[in-house]
Amino acid sequence: MKLIALPILSLFLLSCGNDTLPKPKGHLRLEYPKAIYEEAIVPLPFTFEKNKLSAPIKTVKSTKNTNGIDINYSSLKATIYLTYKDVNGNIDSLLKDAQNLTQKHTIKADAISHNTFENSESNVYGMLYEIDGNAASQSQFYVTDSTKHFLSGSLYFYAKPNYDSIYPAAEYLKKDIKRIMETVRWKE
């Protein structure tokens, strides 16, 4: 009996050493090049700095008082769409339209946070909205001088919104959006 028990006991002791352990949670690690900024040359009444990673700017003329700029990031499959409008005593409706556009994302968004922006030296004031969740746009913003100029922008990806997948790229591009807001200068 001892001869049979000894091999069985040693078999149990040897087999207990390799317990299966759950894998630790992994995170996707994407590294993007360090942003290098240059002045964007656009035929509109303002200037700003853009990331050299983006493609050349495409300007779109919509109406007499509205113009658009597309800043395309083909490697990130994203575009920052900028819309410029003249202010003609309609600042309240422009602000309301920009805020309503952001609120349309509340259906899919987990959270929307906002940060005010103020550069009184350059007469640039605005708001940056950061949208968390599977919304169509991850960031939206506007800047204005309240009397002549109004610039709004939105970040969109060319993919089905999956927040976990686009999060690293969205964070990278939020820095570019902040840089655009910080460097807007109105041409007088």
Results as ranks from 00 to 15, higher is better:
residue 4 I to S: 02
residue 8 I to G: 08
residue 8 I to E: 09
residue 9 L to W: 05
residue 9 L to V: 14
residue 11 L to M: 15
residue 12 F to S: 09
residue 13 L to N: 00
residue 13 L to Y: 03
residue 20 T to I: 10
residue 21 L to C: 00
residue 24 P to V: 14
residue 26 G to W: 08
residue 26 G to Y: 11
residue 28 L to A: 14
residue 33 P to K: 06
residue 38 E to L: 08
residue 43 P to Q: 07
residue 43 P to S: 12
residue 45 P to F: 00
residue 46 F to V: 02
residue 52 K to A: 09
residue 57 I to Y: 06
residue 59 T to H: 02
residue 61 K to W: 01
residue 62 S to F: 12
residue 69 I to H: 01
residue 71 I to C: 06
residue 72 N to P: 01
residue 78 A to M: 10
residue 78 A to Y: 14
residue 82 L to R: 01
residue 83 T to I: 13
residue 90 N to T: 07
residue 96 K to Q: 12
residue 97 D to Y: 04
residue 98 A to E: 07
residue 99 Q to S: 12
residue 100 N to I: 03
residue 103 Q to H: 08
residue 109 A to F: 00
residue 110 D to Y: 00
residue 113 S to W: 00
residue 115 N to H: 13
residue 116 T to R: 13
residue 119 N to P: 01
residue 122 S to K: 09
residue 129 Y to W: 12
residue 131 I to D: 07
residue 134 N to Y: 00
residue 151 L to S: 13
residue 152 S to V: 04
residue 163 Y to L: 13
residue 165 S to V: 10
residue 169 A to P: 09
residue 170 A to E: 14
residue 170 A to M: 03
residue 173 L to P: 07
residue 175 K to Y: 03
residue 178 K to L: 14
residue 180 I to A: 13
residue 180 I to K: 06
residue 181 M to N: 12
residue 184 V to L: 05
residue 184 V to D: 13
residue 184 V to N: 11
